[in-house]
Amino acid sequence: MMTELSLNVLDVAQNSVKAKASLIEISVDASYEKDLMTIVIKDNGCGMDEQQLARVCDPFYTTRTTRKVGLGVSFFKLAAESAGGTFSIASEKGVGTTVTATFQISNIDRMPLGDMTSTVHSLVTLNADTDFIYSYTVDGRGFVLDTREFREILGGVPFDVPEVSDYIRDYLAENKREADAGKLL
């Protein structure tokens, strides 16, 4: 089990990286009024055929050869469904995959969202060849990080040089604070 949802996001987004996606879109949208938080991870990677898609939520299915279980998607599904939410995964071979999980915010079994800043920062700085669009919205207030925009400004300067890496972390942390006024989801 993961201890916070941001770890599920990190884990599931790694599948997109492995699927050779060039663009991964992650969004967290919470509405206290609707008591609903929706997390979407969408990629333009290699996608899955119907057979793979049917088995992807089976914890004993994996494409890895180093071990026999594949718990990443199962964990995320469990986290959503045990918190009054829903889980769905849509995929098309050669087009990409979209994972959508919803959560009832007030549900006592809902895991905390946790440190999304670290998750997105890790993904962006570790996967230099992949672009990310991350959006975070709480009750209609939010921000977007688009690495394509960053890349254009930076010219050839990579994301993992300390100055840029620090900037990305600050960008995520400060804008998050402005969006949710420091409230912990």
């Binding site: 993961m2 990190l10 884990d11 790694q14 718990l71 964990f75 440190d115 998750t119 920062h121």
Partner: peptide, 15 residues
Amino acid sequence: MATCGIASGARPVLN
């Protein structure tokens, strides 16, 4: 940084 690593606390170690 696979599921096993992340679940065991790899993210703070990486940071």
